Computed example of a mutant assay.
Amino acid sequence: MSHSKTNPGNFFEDFTLGQVIEHATPRTITEGDRALYGAIYPSRFALPSSAEFAASVGLSAHPVEELIGFHVAFGKTVPDVSLNAVANLGYAECRFHLPVVPGDTLRTRSEVIGLKENSNGRTGVVWVRSTATNQRGETALDWARWVMVHKRDAEAPAPETVVPELAAVVEPGALVVPAGLDFTQYDAAAAGEPHRLGDYEVGEKIDHVDGVTLTDAEHMMATRLWQNTAKVHFNTQARPDGKRLVYGGHIISLARALSFNGLANAQLIAAINAGSHVAPAFAGDTVHAWSEVLDKADDLAPGVGALRLRLVATRGRDESMTLRREDKKYAEGVLLDLDYWALVPR
């Protein structure tokens, strides 16, 4: 049996510092992506839901949710970066440079910016910086992430350890506000809530109340939609426990959609500062979410400010909204800890 034409994916020892990978299969975003996203996630944000609302705030082309662009661009990287991953460990320095609109074609390239073999000698951590560009060659979004990857051969020598320095937060001055965005005539009734930038206090926590129970069918459909081929999401033989692992991005989108209740005016994600998939999620788990206001930025564009938010997804509802225990470890039930900037009306 010949395997010379098939791709088993890269293992830890296949990565080299500075290596640039051009990922296959550019993908054109369509209105079908918007419809399917709404079928999979209970998202109700006015801007991606209503072309009229988008136009009223200065965006004549009707953008899709930022996370559609993120998932599509991220999915491109999976066959080359994380096909043999144990886990996706975190994100940093993710900026959304341009709204993605139907008709845009995204393609992604990644550069290896860090390597560190784990002490067990069987796995290692790979850091990459990925950039998604549209059909005009403009950057739509870029981000860094790090992933734990299996070694093919435990005896393979360890590379020199290089751990990149990544910013803990995207500074407000580095946030990219879409050209023409103007919230001065913002329709709060259409958006669904009256709360503006000044109504939120740093340190405030918001329980988003609603929960959604995960099913295998939905998370696999979502993951296929983004052409993410990681075996652990589809193949029950890929994990010792025989369960399909839910793609971490599915939890991000679910939590973001649930956050509408209390943050309906957080219309656009401008940046993801940091993200950790704290614990695995599986079909049957019921996901709830809460948010904490970490910071605020004023006057980014006419009528536009930004909230820095910690979005936490939990298995079951945590009415105490506890992120960490006294020993500083994550509290039981925390699935996702995501730190991001959202553009809101002032």
Rank of each mutant, 00 (worst) to 15 (best):
D241N: 09
L258W: 05
V278Q: 12
L214K: 15
E193H: 14
V246M: 10
D299V: 09
V293G: 00
Q185L: 12
D187L: 11
V293Q: 01
D199E: 12
L175C: 15
G180P: 11
L197K: 01
D210E: 13
A306T: 00
I272S: 01
A297Y: 02
V278H: 12
Y247K: 10
R196Y: 07
A174V: 02
W226I: 13
S253K: 13
N228Y: 06
T236L: 13
H208S: 08
I272K: 10
L245M: 08
D216M: 11
L311W: 00
I252W: 08
Q237V: 14
A238F: 09
A266R: 09
Y186C: 05
D295A: 11
K296H: 10
I251K: 00
A189V: 08
A217S: 11
N265T: 10
G203V: 06
L268F: 09
I206G: 03
V232L: 12
D207Q: 03
D199C: 09
M220R: 10
A270G: 06
A279Q: 09
A255S: 08
I269G: 13
E204C: 05
V232K: 14
R256Y: 13
G249H: 07
E201W: 04
D210H: 14
L225R: 07
T223N: 09
T213Y: 04
N235L: 05
E193D: 11
D295E: 09
A255P: 00
T286G: 01
A255T: 00
G180H: 04
A191E: 00
A179W: 02
K205V: 08
I251S: 00
D207T: 00
A264Q: 03
K296M: 07
D216N: 04
K231Q: 11
F282H: 15
T229I: 10
R196H: 15
G275T: 10
D285T: 03
W290S: 04
T314Q: 05
V177F: 09
R196E: 13
R315P: 11
E204P: 06
A174G: 04
D285Y: 03
P280D: 01
E218G: 05
L254A: 14
G198S: 12
